[in-house]
Each structure stands twice: as C-alpha cells, then as structure tokens.
Nucleic acid binder design. Structure first.
Lengths: 232, 232
DNA sequence: AGCGTCGATATAACGCAGTTATGCATCCAT
DNA sequence: ATGGATGCATAACTGCGTTATATCGACGCT
C-alpha cells in the first residue's frame, strides 16, 4: 500500500507530530490514535517504532532537552561571564515559556494519559538515567558558565558543579513556578523575581553588588533588544 | 446494608486512602476502582462525594498543601530570622522528600491516569485559583519570614513578596531537582547545594557573609539534632 | 405508626484509551 | 524468481473513568 516511505522517517514524524499536538491540545492530545491519524498511519506505527506510548513520550522528553541544549548553545560567550549566566537563564526561561507543554513532559511533570508515572518510576533506573543523560548536556552549559565566572575571579573559588547546581535550582524553580502561574504575568516575574534572584545569587557566590548589577543590566539590555520589551 | 457510616466519613476515608495508595504504588495506583476497593465501597463513592477522579485528585493536592503548611507552621520563630528561613527550607524539603508522590500531585507535576492535564488546564482559572489558594498559605510562612529578616536589617529593604518569591524559587527548584534524582543522594545535595544556595541568596539579599554563615550553622545544627545526621 | 421522598450505594454497562493478534503486502537476499 | 522478514492496517482485547439504573435505608410528614 504505502510505497515504503523512507524507512525511519516515520519515527521522526511521530515525534514531530507529538510535539505539535502537545503544544496545541496539551497532554491529553498525546494519544496513539491521534498521533497515528496525524501522520496518516495506524496506531501500529507507535508500536513498531517505539514499542509503546511510554517510550514515545520518553523520546519526546529527550527531544525537549535537545532543544533546550540547542537554545542554550546559541548563547554566545562574551567577556562578561556573569552576564552570560543571566543570559542563559533568560534563554532557559524563553525556551520553556514558548512551549510549556513540551517541558512539562520533559521535566516529567506531566504524564499524558497512559500508565507510567513521573516520579513513580524513579526507581526505574534506566528511564531516569536516559532522561538525565540528555539533561546533563543542557546542564553542561551552566557548569561551563559557572567555571568561567569563577576563573574570572567574580565568584569565590568553588566546585563549578555545585555552583552550577545552585544556579540551576534557582532558575529552574523560578521558571517552574512562573509557568504554573504563581508569579502573575511573565514580564512582572522576570523583572521582580528572576533578575533580582540571579543578581542576588551572583553576589552571594562572590560577585560584588555593583559588578553583578552591571552585568545583569548588560544581559537585560541584550535580552530586551532580542525579545522586544513587550511580551509574555 | 451499611448502617449509614457517619455520612462524610467516606469522603475523608477516600482522600486518606488515595494518599496512602499514592505513597506506595505511585500515581498509577490512584484509580477509582482501587480506591473503592480500599475503603470497601464501589466506584460510585468517588462520584457521589467528589463528582469524579479529577476533583478527588484536586482534593489530594490541597491536602498536600495543608500538610506542607502544617509542617512549616511548626517551625518556631527564633530571634535569628535568617536562620529561620533555612529552617523553613529544610522543613519544606523534608515534607516533600518524605512523600514525593503526594507532592508530585500537589505541585501538579503528575496527573495520575485520567483526563485532566497539569499545565493543560492552567487556562482553567478556577482550578488554578483553588490550588493557589491553599498554596498561598504555605507561601505566607516564607513571606512572613522574609519580612522579619528585612525588619531586622539583615536583608536590604525590599518588598517582602519579591524576596519570598526568590527564596521560594530557589528552595522549590532545589527540591524538585533533588527529588527528580539529579543531585545524588539527599544528604549530599543538602550539604553541597541547598545550604550553600540559601546562604548565598541570603548574602545577595543583603546579609553579610559572616552573619549568613553563622545563621545557617545555627539552623543546620538544629536540623541535624532533629533529623539525625544520617538519613535521606 | 405508616408512607413518601430523597440521598447514597451496588451493579452493570458504555466509551475511549493503550495494547495485542492476525494477516497481508512489500522489500531484500539467494 | 522465490522465500523469508519486516512494516503496516484491521480488528479485537483489557482496563480505565464514567454513567445509567435499581435498590436500600433514613428521615419527615400526616
């Protein structure tokens, strides 16, 4: 019937369709039958290529990490590494805010309809490791940035992993809560919470208040120029 | 058949059973049929008392917030408000770590099996508001603590809501990531990430490094005495 | 006290999700 | 060219939330 459509194309098209449906209809739109209809195939496609919806969702989660990594990778390293950290934070936020549904899945915060659980399967080492593997690359950008700030003498000497983990906690926590709707509209949250948070954390990690504020302003100016000062 | 079992007892028993099953079997154990069997009733109990699984899960989420509030409320206010903040953070963490499945539901990170979505229904104002209402009380403890630190002159003058939101972001982010398994075992994460993070944020918010470190130590000592220095 | 009404529940069935069984059609190797 | 293997569509199976229906018990009124 179908003239053998380029083999593994189907797999990619399924993930692509999954992310598209996810963005529009939310997690409940992520269903085998809907996905199959979307790419003009039967539900069997899900099973021949992934083995089940669970594995497909895992792939979607990994793709989210990949896109996050890509977006963080686009942040150029300037000669002000402290500013780069806030720029990374803002890029992190933009990525998640632009597609909250995808990142709800990526961070395991939402498990669409089927069986497997988010935290329930944290005993499942394999799944956890796989997801972390992809996440580690994204985290790597923070580690690298942290090292540069320390090397520049702006942050106190410390293991860059621990410093990056603190930055990650703050930024990830902020974004999670903003997307959950706890901080009013996005612009307000960024101005009054995320930016002060990043600045304060920088100061606490060793930067001077003045230098941290100046670096933040540099990053903010670039951000406003890029994203436009109005918006989500 | 049943001698009219105290009317609204059933509702409470359902939520209780839900939390118990959740803790053991994860989100996938949160099913109408399992809940009914657990309390020795039929699935109709869910519908007469809640209207559906969605509303029951919402109630479970609220109960999670109530327990969190209760645990935060048990933190006494000492004459070192900066130490109190870390104590609150540690109590927050303990609450979540002791029952990660419950708080995955509470924070809307996991939607067991049925229909409604976590972030998908963030357009549903009512649900969002209700959940936030209960969460606001827990958040209130942070706001109050933030105000006390500012009033004591340890933090720079600032709107206490913004300060509390920054603290909340950092702590919530850390806990989320620790529970997701990104920070190795708990003790390691607390020592190398959460405590330095809280201390650094305190410094950035206006405290001196020495005072912040001293206050942190006060809180840590109390924590170790209470929880025992070995453990999750 | 008798009777009617109403609310809660058990039973059973419905709809829709993931999944699986089966057969066919297409492609590759021999 | 033929035989096996692979991908896929169809259709049936399971288990979930949910709903329809009938029944049972309690309460209020006369």
């Amino acid at each position: 019937m179908s003239p053998k459509p380029a083999a593994t194309e189907v797999k990619a098209k399924l993930i692509e369709a999954a992310i598209r449906l996810l963005a529009h209809g939310g997690p409940e739109a992520l269903q085998a039958r809907k996905l199959a209809a979307e790419i003009g195939a039967s539900t069997m496609a899900v099973y021949t290529h992934f083995g089940g919806m669970g594995a497909l969702v895992d792939e979607v989660a990994r793709e989210g990490f990949r896109r996050l990594s890509a977006n963080l990778g686009e942040v150029e390293e300037t000669d002000d590494p402290a500013a780069d950290i806030l720029t990374l934070a803002l890029a992190y936020r933009r990525t998640v805010v632009d597609n909250p549904q995808l990142y709800a899945v990526t961070f395991g915060q939402s498990q669409p309809s089927g069986q497997k659980a988010a935290l329930g399967d944290m005993t499942n080492e394999e799944t956890r490791q796989n997801a972390s593997e992809e996440g580690r690359e994204a985290f790597g950008y923070l580690v690298r940035a942290a090292k540069r700030v320390i090397d520049a003498g702006r942050f106190r000497p410390a293991p860059e992993f621990a410093v990056a983990a603190q930055l990650w906690s703050a930024v990830h926590g902020y974004i999670t809560l903003e997307v959950a709707g706890h901080f009013g509209d996005g612009r307000n949250g960024v101005d009054h919470i995320l930016i002060p948070l990043a600045t304060a954390l920088g100061v606490g990690l060793g930067d001077t208040f003045e230098a941290a504020t100046r670096s933040a302003q540099v990053s903010i100016d670039a951000w406003r120029a890029k994203e436009g000062n109005i918006g989500t």
